[in-house]
Design a protein around this nucleic acid. Sequence first.
DNA 1: CTAAACCCTGACACTGACGTAAGAGGCAAG
DNA 2: CTTGCCTCTTACGTCAGTGTCAGGGTTTAG
Lengths: 123, 123
Amino acid sequence: MRIGELARRTGASVRSLRYYEEQDLLASTRTPSGQRTYVESDVDRVLFLQRLYAAGLTSATILELLPCAYDPSTRTSDAAFDRLLQERDRVDRQIDDLVRTREALDRMITTNRAHRDSLAVSR
Amino acid sequence: MRIGELARRTGASVRSLRYYEEQDLLASTRTPSGQRTYVESDVDRVLFLQRLYAAGLTSATILELLPCAYDPSTRTSDAAFDRLLQERDRVDRQIDDLVRTREALDRMITTNRAHRDSLAVSR
DNA sequence: CTAAACCCTGACACTGACGTAAGAGGCAAG
DNA sequence: CTTGCCTCTTACGTCAGTGTCAGGGTTTAG
């Protein structure tokens, strides 16, 4: 599959896919004329990359822990594994933080709705 | 209280506090010589701003829904309230997404730990 | 053969919340 | 008074992922 199809199937832009390759996060084979070619499993790989990007990981961090995702059978380096644990904890804290933020927003919504309702009645 | 103390008490940088003011998110009174002065409640306000920034809101968005936070007694505009609902939903989706990411990371951790343990035994 | 749609590299633009540095003034303590 | 620390404004720098444009080949359908 060529880059355009991979883009359509993952929702990533063509630009992003080339960027991922530049960051060594996504490999492609080239046709004789130089066009990138991808295999089926690259769809999942890109979706995985997007998931990590969305969670706030940087290219460098993703690169570091990729061996844990795609080569767990050989013993991955301690550094990679440490990074993995570390990022899991970061995501964990981020979730806690967001939950508290959601609670704060919910309280605001409740308060405002109360005021809006009471004013609606009085008009 | 002057800007340095507010910074220390909130964990925000002095630069950030000036930036918040520039974005109309934080007000200050000035001494005759032009130095910013803050009141106690500004500590909470800054903490609240930081919370929203951490949740991925932009300055413009925060500005839009601030009336809901600090002036719920008067009927806040529909636009502000809509924004509030919208951002709550966004945070909600973000949490769901992060939870799935955490699950993925947890699976990776489990898989890798298994491999690491088995190799540790065989050495 | 040709048009349309696709792909290539290279490079600059952008966004947004800050960092940071320069040059200058303000303020409390010794 | 002065030393040291705080604060002021102005303004340019940064980072990271991505948009976008230019100029040029490639592939495919008709």
